[in-house]
Amino acid sequence: MTALLSIKTRRTKLGHDEKKESTLEDSRKVVHLRVYRKNPKQDKSSHFDKFEVPVQRWTTVLDALLHAKEYLDKSIAIRYSCRMASCGSCGMKINGIPRLACYTKISEIDGNIITCEPLPNFPVIRDLVGDFSDFFDHHGAMEPFIHNQNVDIIDKNRLTEFIQTPEDVENYLQFSYCIKCGLCYSACPSVGSDTRFPGPQALAQAYRYVADNRDDATQSRLNIVDNKHGIWRCHFAGSCSVVCPKGVDPALGIQLLRGHLVNFSKNDKKLAESRTRDLGKT
């Protein structure tokens, strides 16, 4: 019944969107694309180039940018790959808000001026392409893999099954949907003023492994995030969760991780571990 209700709700919402879009002319219209241009190797200053791009109601910002690149200016630098919000490559600031260009339809944006800028908090390599080195370094610092002293991952003859219930999986599943697009990192005000702060993505990934009952390195991960540039720099502005295109909700992960640090949330994991032990016995 709940599933039916949620399907009905989703259909209603989709129907609403379709109705909104159908108010746009089906025939082609033209939008003005303002694209941030900067090539630090040649010139440290930046400027905006304007392009007139024909769009239809299903045209995404990435489509429009690729049209401009193909027919108007081949030197525009864009990073993209899957075109379906799976790879997280085409993150950029669109009309002031970090979004995925492939996941943002022109018809969703008010007005016909689309301003594309590189994601804030990422040094610009060129035009709309940012340097993700710090971002991935912070991610790597969280040791984003399962630690388990009881399992030999070298000797294949001694491989052991990890047993988990569906409830155990739901404790961390949503955080594992992160595509590392960097939108949360660029929306975070704490990252904006402290480059040593790991940012919402990395902290949510730390929680993803802390919440996973196959992992036994909770204490070492808590030690990694518990420092003066660490998790306490988060002030729960919630912007990371607002911009996340995959529903990961990094703000939730960070607050729950803080709950572990102040000893408020450990019982959940202990209960899950005891459930798994009981399952193993049966």
Partner: peptide
């Protein structure tokens, strides 16, 4: 935490 379902609405 739970399974995120489109359209995503952050529970936090």
């Amino acid at each position: 935490p739970g399974r995120p379902d489109y359209p995503y609405s952050p529970v936090s």
